[in-house]
């Protein structure tokens, strides 16, 4: 599983690219045709570089001073080679057309314009094969790569097959800024400290911070919250789980028995599905205790006055500028 990768066009070369070569120019006929970026262990005399169209996309994106990234259509494209499925959709038994199996969230324009089991016949004028590929500059590549050719907010021309007829439409494409699986790549991570308990947003970056063996350190429920729940619907997709990242030990929390990497679901009875929820719940907390509930069903508490006193000491002790950064 590649939870933190997006698929973009790359070019394979027989020049070995080794550690330290990354970022170096690839020259052909005196012109830069790419930027080298990766080799692959076990793959001899082969390396990969970023082609010019990806570099141009990046540079164009930056012209307004805001980097958006590469947009997506928010659809799952699968091959359509089964004769029965083609017949059920009223399609000829040939090599044209790939099926849109599912619509992802949150892509409101996609949900407005497309349906599950629409058949993608053309993307940006390129005929789509039944295997989901297009012939792009002489190479067979997946049709989804064409979506990354346009900029955030721009549209792409699609020809689809629906209800036994062809239909042409312009689909606006967006960079899904809500996609936590892409990670929070360009901003420092948010955090809120409550009595020494450090909470942050569950993201690919967070999992990456756990090291190479992160999969062994988080449960299936955590991975589900990060990756799979997004596919259930708009509301679920927009939820940003809050995870207990670490505990800054203090006499007031030394016996707190819920482990780090647990997902917080409630504070003082208030549901928590984002850092903003947690910030508000902390701000409006009343009573003698912070009462926490976690996704596992575990509950815990901190004495509120002790927690507030501990925060001041811990900020000083660990050189932390403030109790939260959102």
């Amino acid at each position: 599983m590649q939870t933190n990768k997006s698929n973009l066009l790359a070019v394979q070369t027989d020049a070995a690219i080794n550690p330290g070569n990354s970022g170096g120019p690839v020259i052909q006929d005196g012109k830069v045709v790419g930027v080298s970026f990766q080799g692959k262990p076990g793959l001899e005399n082969a390396g990969f570089f970023i082609p010019p169209n990806i570099i141009r996309h990046f540079l164009e994106d930056l012209t307004d001073g805001i980097y958006e990234g590469f947009p997506a259509a928010g659809i799952g494209i699968v091959k359509l080679t089964n004769p029965a499925f083609r017949a059920a959709l009223g399609l000829a038994q040939n090599n044209i057309g790939a099926r849109i199996d599912s619509l992802f969230y949150p892509f409101p324009a996609t949900h407005e314009l497309l349906r599950e089991n629409d058949v993608l016949l053309e993307v940006a004028g390129y005929p789509v094969g039944s295997d989901g590929n297009v012939i792009y500059r002489g190479n067979s590549v997946h049709a989804a790569l064409l979506f990354s050719q346009v900029q955030h907010g721009e549209s792409i021309a699609l020809k689809i097959w629906r209800d036994n007829a062809e239909l042409e439409l312009e689909l606006p494409l967006y960079v899904n800024s809500e996609d936590r699986t892409m990670g929070n790549q360009y901003e420092p991570p948010p955090f809120i400290i409550v009595g020494g308990l450090v909470f942050t947003e569950l993201s690919t970056n967070y999992l990456g911070s756990l090291g190479r063996n992160w999969r062994d350190q988080v449960g299936a429920d955590t991975l589900y919250e990060l990756v799979y729940r997004n596919r259930l619907g708009d509301e679920a997709a927009r939820a940003k789980p809050v995870v207990l990242s670490t505990i800054l030990k203090h006499a007031s929390n030394i016996d707190f028995s819920v482990d780090a990497r647990s997902i917080l679901t409630e504070l003082n009875g208030q549901p928590i599905s984002s850092m903003a929820d947690l910030s508000a719940a902390v701000e409006h907390a009343e009573g003698d205790f912070y009462r926490f509930r976690f996704l596992s069903g575990a509950v815990e508490a901190l004495n509120r006055s002790e927690a507030l006193a501990a925060e001041a000491q811990l900020l000083q002790q660990y050189n932390i500028p403030s109790v939260q950064r959102l």
């Binding site: 799952g76 089964n82 029965a84 499925f85 059920a88 599912s102 799979y228 729940r229």
Partner: peptide
């Protein structure tokens, strides 16, 4: 459903729909 068997998988998985010829 008509001439076909329609199978849906859980929405979070990698594939949602397949169709098979019922008579065959």
């Amino acid at each position: 459903q008509g001439a076909y068997h329609r199978i849906r998988f859980m929405p979070e998985g990698g594939l949602r729909h397949i169709v098979l010829d019922a008579a065959a």
